[in-house]
């Protein structure tokens, strides 16, 4: 659970950073096509890795005894934030994959699997400029929601450690 938690935390933060950095290229010409392409590629692969880890993550969560929830609004906020994080960790890769499928560029989504070699993932929907605009906007808005929840989550963890002085954070120490 801890390993999964910190792996996914690292992956998601990388994805957020990569996502915002790579999309700058098309605006100000910050990157050449090759660099931008490479960044997008890595973004998609890491994002799909998060997708692949999502179910094991949920199973691990179910199998772990979570610390007793705080009473009152703090407990409700924590439950909502955790639920939101799980939803977004699924919704982000799914909207990303959908947006990639809908892209008018219609490039195949190749994933370099170990041993098996590159595998082309199927398009979830047909290419369509409007669907792409919609889905990439959804992906972006969800990314901001994710940042908000991560901030809340970190604040909550910090409060446990610094204000409440309980061992909630220590449980997750790597």
């Amino acid at each position: 659970m801890r390993l999964l938690h910190w792996t996914m935390a690292g992956l998601v933060l990388t994805l957020l950073a990569l996502g915002f950095v790579m999309t700058q290229g098309t605006l100000g010409g910050a990157f050449d096509l090759a660099t931008s392409f490479t960044l997008y590629q890595w973004h998609k692969w890491i994002g799909l890795l998060v997708l692949a880890l999502w179910l094991p993550r949920l199973v691990a969560r179910g199998a772990t005894q979570a610390p007793a929830a705080l009473a009152g609004w703090q407990g409700r906020a924590a439950r909502a934030a955790h639920g939101g994080l799980y939803v977004l960790m699924l919704a982000m890769p799914v909207t990303g994959w959908l947006a990639t499928s809908a892209s008018p560029l219609h490039l195949p989504l190749l994933v370099p699997l170990p041993v098996l070699g590159p595998v082309a993932l199927p398009d979830l929907i047909a290419p369509d400029a409007r669907a792409y605009a919609l889905l990439s906007t959804a992906h972006e808005i969800l990314a901001f929601a994710l940042i908000g929840l991560v901030a809340l989550h970190v604040a909550g963890a910090a409060r446990h450690a610094l204000v409440n002085r309980d061992d909630t954070l220590r449980r997750m120490a790597p």
């Binding site: 096509l33 090759a34 660099t35 392409f37 490479t38 590629q41 190749l110």
Partner: peptide
């Protein structure tokens, strides 16, 4: 060779 191996692989592909 575009100096980006990932891009090269793509350009070798079907599109």
């Amino acid at each position: 060779d575009t100096h980006a191996p990932l891009l090269d692989d793509y350009v070798r592909g079907a599109g």
